[in-house]
Simulated assay, not measured.
Amino acid sequence: MRLRSKAFLISTGILMLAVLASVVIGGLVGGMGSLPKVSVVEGSPVAASVQAVEGLDVRLAPSTDAAEALVRDGTVDAAVLGADGASGTGGSAPSGYTVIALDSAPTAVVQALSVAPTVQLLEPSDQNPLIVYFVALAFGLVFFMSAITFGSTIAQSVVEEKQTRVVEILLSTIPVRALLAGKVLGNSLLAFGQIAAIAVLAGIGLLATGQSTLLASLGPSIIWFVVFFAFGFVLLASLYAATAALVSRQEDIGSVTAPVTMLVMIPYFLVIFFNDNPLVLGIMSYVPFSAPVGMPMRLFLGTAQWWEPLLALVVLVIVTAGVIVLGSRIYSNSLLRTGARVKLRDALRG
């Protein structure tokens, strides 16, 4: 029923569109990094020195007039001549060049030709900051939307069965733990399938937009995200089912599941605001509720050792097993109690 519902299909479509949009925008951002184009007179002393400058796309012209013509028709951003090789709009650089531009100073060309001090980075990063932000937004948004959507479905189902007394009929034929396992595993399979479909769509989008290099660096992160999400969602689903069993009215679901919702929202905001902070991401990688977002980001940035995802996954699995046992106890002791909200202390004692 959930797989055929319009709400599920619409939410999945929105998530896929968001991921696809981030892939396309990332491709456009990457394409904006083309080198500035300049023209030089072929065979001139300036031509050899300009061609040796990194960060410029040099076009050869047979004469000074031809070099300026390339500027006027927009083929190049500027023409680079000798200090006394031309007149007109432009400026003489300290290095002995004259930069000829059309209607505004070509800042990128001037910076490339200027003598700059040597810059040494202690922790260099090959990733475009804007692409890093979009990757963090994609991981955070997919985790947030999927966990909230399917977690809320589990909570509403639990309360609906209590409110209509259907749960009493169900428990006369199956054990309470089997009922809980069916809810958690069923919704987990749907969530896992949704995440896997989004991961495949992201890979196809990266290939279709010519971002194979980005796919090569992002691919391992996507795979680990799917793996971590599979276990992380089981943890969250158990908490949603356990907390929802404490109440008997649909109106009380929001208040009783608010702490679990906060556990879902915190990683989303942390990865958006601290996507380049190694300390915050390192802590997120080993906290079970945020590991599905924090560890893939560290793998994408290249700041995680090869053994760290394995260790973080072991921690997540152990904590998930403990939460399942705890949630099962709360669920079993609260499911048949109707009326006022069941206190957590009473649910744990039984």
Rank of each mutant, 00 (worst) to 15 (best):
R177H: 08
A116E: 14
A155K: 00
K343D: 15
S217Y: 04
V234I: 14
A147K: 00
G91Q: 02
P62Y: 01
V260K: 00
F150P: 12
A197P: 11
A105R: 12
D65N: 05
V159A: 06
L301R: 13
V184L: 04
L130K: 08
V319I: 10
S95L: 00
E54I: 05
L130A: 14
L236K: 02
A196R: 02
L214V: 15
T149S: 11
G186I: 08
V271W: 03
A138Q: 09
A208W: 01
A47M: 00
E42A: 09
M1H: 08
A112I: 03
G254I: 07
I148W: 03
Q120N: 12
D65V: 06
G205A: 10
D346A: 12
K162C: 02
L279C: 00
L60R: 10
V184T: 10
L113A: 12
I222H: 05
L281R: 07
V53P: 04
N333T: 05
Q194S: 15
R337E: 00
M145A: 15
L170V: 15
A312M: 01
S248Q: 04
Y133D: 09
K162Q: 04
Q211H: 04
G350P: 05
E68K: 13
F231W: 12
Q211P: 05
V109L: 01
T64C: 02
V46K: 03
V38D: 05
T107S: 13
V38G: 05
V317A: 15
R298K: 13
R4F: 03
V317F: 09
V176I: 12
R249K: 13
G140Q: 04
S104I: 02
W224Y: 13
A69Y: 01
M265H: 00
R249L: 01
D65R: 08
A155S: 12
A147Y: 03
I25M: 10
S146D: 06
L279P: 00
A181T: 15
L218T: 11
I148R: 10
L301H: 07
V19Q: 03
L190S: 12
Q305I: 01
V260G: 05
Y240W: 10
A191Q: 13
V319S: 07
Y286V: 15
L190M: 13
I330A: 02
A61H: 08
Y240S: 12
N333K: 03
P36Q: 06
L28E: 01
V115Y: 02
L335C: 05
A67M: 01
I198E: 14
V29F: 00
G82A: 11
L56V: 11
L279V: 15
M16G: 14
I272G: 04
T257W: 00
N128W: 03
M295G: 07
V159Y: 02
N277Y: 00
V76R: 05
V200Q: 11
E160S: 14
S290Q: 01
E251S: 09
V176N: 08
T64G: 15
L299C: 02
N275C: 09
T64I: 14
A340R: 09
G327K: 04
L214W: 08
N277H: 03
G91I: 06
F233Y: 15
D57T: 10
V293G: 06
P292C: 03
L81A: 13
P278H: 02
A66F: 04
A202L: 08
M1A: 09
L102D: 14
G90Q: 05
V319R: 01
P124K: 08
E68I: 14
F269W: 14
L189V: 13
T257S: 07
S238A: 10
T243E: 04
P94C: 02
V23W: 00
A208Q: 01
